[in-house]
Structures are given as structure tokens and as C-alpha cells.
Design a protein around this nucleic acid. Sequence first.
DNA 1: GTTCCTGCAAAAGCTTTGCAGAAGA
DNA 2: TCTTCTGCAAAGCTTTTGCAGGAAC
Lengths: 141, 141
Amino acid sequence: MGLSFDKLKKELSKRNIALSHQRLKVLEYLADNRCHPTADQIYVALKRQIPTLSKTTVYNTLKILGEAGMVKAITIEDNETRYDIDCKDHGHFKCESCGTIYDFSIDLDSMKSGDLNGFKIRDKDVYFKGICPSCLSLTGS
Amino acid sequence: MGLSFDKLKKELSKRNIALSHQRLKVLEYLADNRCHPTADQIYVALKRQIPTLSKTTVYNTLKILGEAGMVKAITIEDNETRYDIDCKDHGHFKCESCGTIYDFSIDLDSMKSGDLNGFKIRDKDVYFKGICPSCLSLTGS
DNA sequence: GTTCCTGCAAAAGCTTTGCAGAAGA
DNA sequence: TCTTCTGCAAAGCTTTTGCAGGAAC
């Protein structure tokens, strides 16, 4: 799945955190479903495999994996935190018609701003919104 | 305050929406406090001038002004929608230490991405996070 | 008189917290 | 045994909704 579990385990063991069955499943789900799911979507999907799963564990896991740098929270819209396992720089486009979130590549280094001299930048997010080609074609372009 | 109230009124009248006292005060507050306040901050501040003000009205107003294109919601962090009256293109930097949100200029047109051919882009948001110079100096750089 | 606006109260939705039992080293 | 993890229930917060009274035209 293109993920370095070694790196993850190393990062987690540094913090005395185990990669439990539930946590591994959440990670696998994110790796296999690059659709930027919400915590609830992850919960509902995994509940089938792990009937005892609780939403608390999903939230806890996402928080831990986020702090370990393996998962990124996407807050493109309020009241709708989504999660992304792909941490390499890219932008997110949300279709306001169908709600789908698309990744797109972007050169973040070219976005340097002189206004931020002296600022320590840790994270860059680029969120675009509009209508995707699929929805555009439905409405007769 | 550098705002075109004529443009706003025109936009609102198009929708049969009045610029009531409460709505005007919310707008004024946003114009005078370019600190990207939350709905609650606006409510608390205006409550002193308008003791009968309700939070519902603040939310309602922010929604209406947002739809009219005069106010922009900033969802740089989950559970913390902030509002901005300045609609010209700029990025937002949030200091993870003190929570302050800084504006910075950015050339959004240079951010075109070939991956988005065929997409209708209506809105672009750029959110950076990190530590601001003020907080950096406090911790001994 | 008709329409829109306001604001109270309640509901809704997402996320966090407290805690007891289970699992793992 | 000791620590950490899990998951239920309850609480916490922000935001939305229903509705009755009030204001404006």
C-alpha cells in the first residue's frame, strides 16, 4: 500500500504507543480508501469487520496517527473533518455539487510569500471549491 | 472602512434582504476587527451594544452576508469557524502557539494546476500553520 | 396586512471526557 | 502485575431549526 509501516512503528514506539488491531485497521482503511473519509465513515465501514469497535477508538486512533504524522486532518468545510493518509504536498478540491474531494498536485514551494518572513511554517493547506467536470456535464455544462 | 455598502445593499436587495440594525452592526464589527473572529466573539462583543441580540441572529447574519459574497468563512481549524470581511485573495497563517491568524498576500493565479482542467473553480483557500515571529522570540528562537 | 426579521428554547451533530473492564507485555 | 487500550455512556460545543412575537413597508 505504499506506506512505510516501519517508519510508523518507529514513530509510535518513540511515544510508547502500540499499533493495535483497531489502529492498524483504521490505517489500512485510509490507505485503501483515498476518498478522504470522515471519522464516521471509517467507523461505519470498520464496524462490519470489528463489531465491537467504538467511535471513541476511531477518534482516538485518528488523533494518535495524526500526532505521529501519518494522517492528516482536512478541514475544507466546517462540521466535516476528513482524513487523508497521503502526506505529500497536494491540494484538495471539493465539488460543491456532489461533495467529492479530489486531490491535485501543486508546487507549494512556489507559493512563498514575502509577508511570512520570520514565520516558521509547519503545514500548508490548499483548498479549492467549485464544480467538478462530472457535475458540470450533468447540468448541460 | 473601505467597504462598498452600495454594492452590499444592491446585492441584498436583489435577494429581498434588508440591511437591518443587527446586520449592519455585524458587518461593522467585521470591518473594524480584522482579527478573524468567531461567531461567538462577534456575539459577545455586540451583546454589549445590543443587549437583546441573540446568537441565532449572528449566525443568520453571517450566513446571509456570506451568501451575498461580503463575508467569507475561514475553516482553518475544525470546530472553529472564523469570519473575514476582506474578500480579496490572500492566505491565512495560523500560529499554533498563540492562535493568532495572520493574513498574507499570495498570487492565487500562479497556483493553477493542470490536474484541474475541466473543473469550475469558485473559491480558493490557502491555509498555513506554524509559529509566528512573536512566539518564536519568546521561546528563544 | 403581508412579509421579513429577531430571538428564545430546543434539537441536532460532531467530538471529547470519565471510567471500568479487557488486553497485552 | 502494571501499563495501555478499548468502548460505553455522558458531557461539551458549535451550529441549526421551530416557532411566536415584533418590526418594517
